[in-house]
C-alpha cells in the first residue's frame, strides 16, 4: 500500500514534468522573423571549408550569402558535423543546412529540400600507380574503397561495389589521408571535391580513374538546401531566391570564382 502511494506520487510528478516539457516546446517554436541561422559542414572544399581563423567559406557559403541578400534576411553561419546534420535540423538548431546534400527520397522523408542549387557527378579516385582499369563492379572487386560515411557516395558504393570492402570515414579529409598513405585502393566522392584535392600537394599521389554512372535512385535530382519539415514558406523563399540569383547573374559570378564550368548542371 505504502509503495503504491509512493509510486502514484512519482507518477504524478512524471506527468507534471512531461506537461511542462510540452509547454516549453510550444513556446520555443513560435515567432518567425527573417533572421536565419545557416549551417554547413566546413570540411568539403571547395564547397565549404574553414578559413584559417575558423570562419566558414567556399562556394556553398557564397551562394547562401547571395540567397540571404536576395531574401533580405539577416543570416548567421554555424558549422555542423555531417553525421548529425539531419537530427540537428529536425531539433531546430538552425534553419537551413547547405553542404552539397543530395535530394534523396530517404532524406525527403525526414526533412524538406529547396530546389537544386547545384548538381555534380561522382568520380572514383585512386593512387597514380593503380592497377584499377575502370569503375565497374568487376574492376573494383576485392579492392578497399574509402567513402565519407552517411553520404550518397557511401550508399552508392555499398550498392554498386558489393565485392569490394567499403570503409567509411567521418569526413572527406580522413579518406584522403588514407588514400595518400596507401591504406586505400580507391575512393568515391564528388568529382569537383576530388579535382580540388588533386590540385593540392597532398593530392599529388592520386588520379581520377573514372566516373561511374550516377544512379538517380540514389543521387536524386541534384543537391538542395535542407530545411526542417513544415516550413513551406521558407522553402519557397529559398526557391525564389535561387531562381533570382540564377537569373540576375549573381550565381554565375560565384560559380566562375570557383569553377570553369557550370556546377548547376542542366
Amino acid at each position: 500500500m505504502h509503495i503504491m502511494k509512493r509510486f502514484a506520487l512519482a507518477a504524478s510528478a512524471a506527468i507534471v514534468v512531461l506537461t511542462m516539457g510540452a509547454i516549453a516546446m510550444d513556446t520555443a517554436q513560435a515567432a518567425d522573423k527573417l533572421k536565419l541561422t545557416i549551417a554547413s559542414e566546413g570540411a568539403y572544399p571547395p564547397f565549404n571549408t574553414l578559413s584559417p581563423d575558423g570562419k566558414l567559406e567556399g562556394f556553398d557559403i557564397d551562394i547562401a550569402k547571395a540567397l540571404c541578400d536576395q531574401m533580405k534576411a539577416d543570416c548567421t553561419f554555424v558549422t555542423q558535423d555531417w553525421d548529425g546534420a539531419i537530427p540537428a535540423l529536425q531539433a531546430g538548431k538552425f534553419d537551413a543546412f547547405i553542404a552539397v546534400m543530395s535530394i534523396t527520397p530517404e532524406r525527403e522523408k525526414q526533412i524538406d529540400f529547396t530546389n537544386k542549387y547545384m548538381s555534380t557527378p561522382p568520380a572514383v579516385v585512386a593512387p597514380k600507380d593503380t592497377d584499377i582499369k575502370g569503375v565497374t563492379k568487376e574492376d573494383l572487386a576485392g579492392k578497399t574503397i574509402g567513402v565519407q560515411g552517411a553520404t550518397t557516395f557511401s550508399n552508392f558504393s555499398e550498392k554498386t561495389y558489393p565485392d569490394s570492402s567499403i570503409k567509411s570515414y567521418p569526413t572527406a579529409e580522413e579518406y584522403q589521408l588514407d588514400l595518400a598513405n596507401g591504406r586505400l585502393d580507391a575512393a568515391v566522392d564528388d568529382r569537383v571535391v576530388i579535382d580540388n584535392w588533386l590540385k593540392t600537394a597532398d593530392g599529388a599521389c592520386c588520379k581520377i580513374v573514372g566516373m561511374p554512372k550516377a544512379d538517380p535512385a540514389i543521387f536524386g535530382p541534384g543537391m538542395g538546401i535542407a530545411i526542417k519539415k513544415g516550413r513551406p514558406e521558407l522553402v519557397k523563399k529559398f526557391n525564389d531566391a535561387i531562381a533570382a540569383i540564377r537569373a540576375n547573374g549573381t550565381y554565375k559570378k560565384i560559380n566562375d570564382k570557383y569553377f570553369d564550368f557550370d556546377v548547376y548542371g542542366d
Binding site: P87, E106, R107, G149, T151, K167, S168, Y169, P170
Partner: peptide
C-alpha cells in the same frame, strides 16, 4: 573507434541511421 573505419556497435548504428534516418 568508428572514426578509423571500424564498424563497431556505434559504427553500425551510424550506418543504419545514415540509411534509414530513423532516430
Amino acid at each position: 573507434v568508428a572514426i578509423i573505419t571500424i564498424y563497431d556497435l556505434m559504427g553500425e548504428t551510424r550506418r543504419a541511421y545514415a540509411q534509414t534516418f530513423d532516430f
